[in-house]
């Protein structure tokens, strides 16, 4: 039984025919990491926002189910839904700087969640925050707790969000490109840390990324998204051995490797893109009949 199950989730731009998500289905079991890859603008972040109920006002869910631990979130009254999400889910957002309040120090921004939602004492929360910052390899956590977001480097901000996502020990984490600002050595440590915490708490993790290298290191399964449509849903090893969809194959082939200095930067071939786009349109037509 999966901890998170999304079934036939569709989303539209309000009052317009533009489709953002097209019958998306995916599952994340407890203790599993599911990778979510796909071109920029494919709707990866929208899936994350739909789960956490933070979709922009201009986008509405037109159908489907988001089942968290046996309950369909979309059927719950808003207040109940929010408390449930606040208790069990956390997001590592794509935009670290905008996710942090620019006019507050880092310390309270991490501890407030613990104090307000999990009713920790402030002293405990602060101790935990310091530990977490050290665990994500932030030098001088004391100083960072007292800094404002703009006084930190991009990678530090990102690690702060990783730390605060793990702080409340959630059951599901949606990580939206969580390591884009990290150098590879820190990234490696963080990915290991994530795997470790996950093993310890059995967290389910939905991991959005563009880096197939990262996918091959942390994910057990993988969904490939294009234009809001899931093209492929595979076990990780199967994907790297024999990608099912032509688009996935092209994606894998186009991924640059540092070991290959002459590998030119080739985009996914136009023919593959055209075929995939046609597939998305065909899916729309069959949905309308």
């Amino acid at each position: 039984m999966s901890y998170l199950t999304i079934r036939n989730l569709s989303a539209n731009l309000k009052g317009r025919p533009d489709r953002i998500l097209r019958n998306v289905s995916l599952q994340v079991a407890a203790g599993e990491v599911r990778g979510l890859v796909g071109e920029s603008g494919a709707g990866k972040s929208m899936i994350g926002k739909a789960i956490l109920g933070t979709l922009p006002l201009s986008i509405e869910i037109t159908g489907g189910e988001i089942i968290l631990d046996g309950t369909d979130l979309l059927k719950l009254p808003p207040a109940q839904r929010r408390t449930r999400i606040g208790q069990f889910c956390a997001l590592i957002p794509q935009d670290p700087l905008t996710a942090l309040n620019p006019s507050r120090r880092i310390g309270p921004q991490i501890t407030n969640r613990l104090v307000d939602i999990l009713r920790w004492t402030r002293a405990d929360a602060e101790k935990r925050a310091r530990e977490l910052l050290a665990e994500v390899h932030i030098p001088d956590p004391e100083r960072v707790m007292r800094s404002y977001p703009h006084e930190l480097s991009g990678g530090m901000r990102q690690r702060i969000l990783i730390a605060s996502a793990f702080a409340a020990e959630p059951k599901l984490i949606v990580a939206d490109e969580p390591t884009t600002a990290l150098d590879v050595t820190v990234q490696k440590q963080i990915l290991k840390l994530i795997a470790e915490m996950q093993a310890r708490h059995g967290t389910a993790l939905l991991f959005v990324t563009h880096d197939l290298g990262v996918v091959s290191k942390v994910c057990q399964s993988l969904s490939v998204l294009y234009g809001g449509l899931v093209l492929e849903d595979s076990r990780m090893t199967d994907f790297f051995h024999a990608p099912k969809h032509p688009y996935s194959r092209a994606l894998l082939a186009a991924t640059p490797k540092y070991t290959d200095p002459d590998g030119s930067l080739t985009p996914v071939p136009d023919a593959v893109v055209a075929a995939t786009r046609a597939e998305v349109e065909a899916a729309d037509r069959s949905a309308h009949v």
Partner: peptide, 18 residues
């Protein structure tokens, strides 16, 4: 260019870099 392709998929990345 400060970390400009980290958030791009390989295709857009290739396009920008080219």
């Amino acid at each position: 260019a400060d970390e400009i392709v980290s958030g791009l998929d390989v295709s857009s990345q290739a396009q920008v870099l080219n």
